[in-house]
């Protein structure tokens, strides 16, 4: 009786503050989230909504926008430049992603082994990603100058006649892609490196006991267990690749003859050199749709595969 009597009041006052504390905690959490939610709404949600709305308008940036319904979308069908820029975008992504991913994976494998000065190499490969893309673009532009650039001067030493890299429509896009591969491989490598270090060592030991070849170990253990890292890397780098802008702006400005104008660059040109901000918004919506579809497809592709059973 006494114990019950004793416990009861103890129980009551305890439950009330706990409830109170819980709602207090929730309030604090929301308060702390508020700045980022506000930022998210103002800088991401609002611009996206504005762009979607603007895609139904004719707007030259200077006077008031005029509602034209689906006219911008209808115009796209006959716009060779815009359609070509969509093709250019896929071409760039195909040049960029496979090479960058394979290179990053090879770098990660090499720097995951016990070689000398491993940390120095890791830093060196990440450096290009840390530098300003615009500054790097300017320097690469000098390197690729056909007359006075370092690359063709170097090729000259071996009697090789270097191409006009950035003014030749065959070469310009591969050159841009290679600069970006150089710039982002080290960064992508970091994710593979983290993924590699998370693979339990006993799996390799077991494989050794079974006498598996290094190649077999790579395809049976390393690659399947890297799948989470691979999914992350592919989704983010494909999105980044579809949005490439700075390197192109600095190195070719979309030229020669529109051969490096990706969809993202075409959006800039339409909006800020042709003053067709409504039409550019329509292109931005198209780019958004393309990226969303491809990202969904990637996620689905990775989900379909059987997962490796750890237990």
């Amino acid at each position: 009786m006494q114990t019950l009597h004793d416990t009861e009041p103890r129980f009551e006052p305890e439950s009330a503050p706990r409830k109170h504390r819980r709602s207090n905690a929730a309030f604090e959490a929301y308060a702390m989230l508020a700045p980022s939610i506000l930022g998210f709404a103002v800088f991401l949600i609002a611009p996206i909504v504005i762009v979607v709305v603007l895609s139904f308008y004719d707007w030259n940036l200077l006077s008031d926008p005029e509602f034209i319904g689906l006219e911008n979308y209808r115009e796209l069908a006959g716009d060779e430049r815009a359609l070509k820029s969509i093709g250019n975008t896929f071409y760039y992504v195909l040049l960029n992603i496979p090479a960058q991913t394979v290179l990053a994976l090879l770098l990660a494998l090499a720097l995951n082994s016990k070689i000398k000065a491993r940390n120095t190499f890791r830093v060196l490969y990440v450096l290009p990603w840390m530098a300003m893309p615009v500054a790097l673009g300017v320097i690469w532009r000098w390197v690729f100058d056909p007359q006075y650039g370092a690359l063709n001067r170097f090729l000259d030493l071996f009697g090789v006649d270097g191409a006009a890299w950035l003014t030749d429509s065959t070469w310009a896009m591969p050159v841009i892609a290679s600069v970006n591969i150089w710039q982002y491989s080290g960064y992508t490598m970091l994710f593979f490196l983290a993924g590699l270090q998370a693979i339990p060592a006993q799996l390799y030991e077991a494989a050794d006991v079974d006498g598996a070849s290094p190649l077999y170990r790579f395809f049976a253990i390393t690659l399947p267990l890297l799948r989470p890292a691979m999914l992350f890397v592919l989704i983010t780098s494909v999105i980044g690749s579809f949005q490439v802008f700075d390197t192109i702006h600095v190195m070719t400005a979309g030229g020669p003859a529109g051969s490096t104008a990706t969809l993202n660059y075409q959006i800039y040109l339409e909006s800020f050199t042709q003053r067709n901000a409504g039409y550019a918004s329509m292109l931005a919506v198209i780019l958004f749709a393309i990226i969303a579809l491809i990202t969904l497809a990637q996620a689905a592709l990775f989900r379909k595969r059987t997962t490796y059973d750890f237990s």
């Binding site: 800088f43 504005i50 982002y184 999105i239 980044g240 949005q243 802008f245 909006s271 901000a277 550019a280």
Partner: peptide
């Protein structure tokens, strides 16, 4: 990754 957003979005956000 290639940390770029479309210039149009940036301008409107600004």
């Amino acid at each position: 990754m290639n940390k770029t957003r479309t210039a149009a979005i940036a301008a409107l956000a600004l």
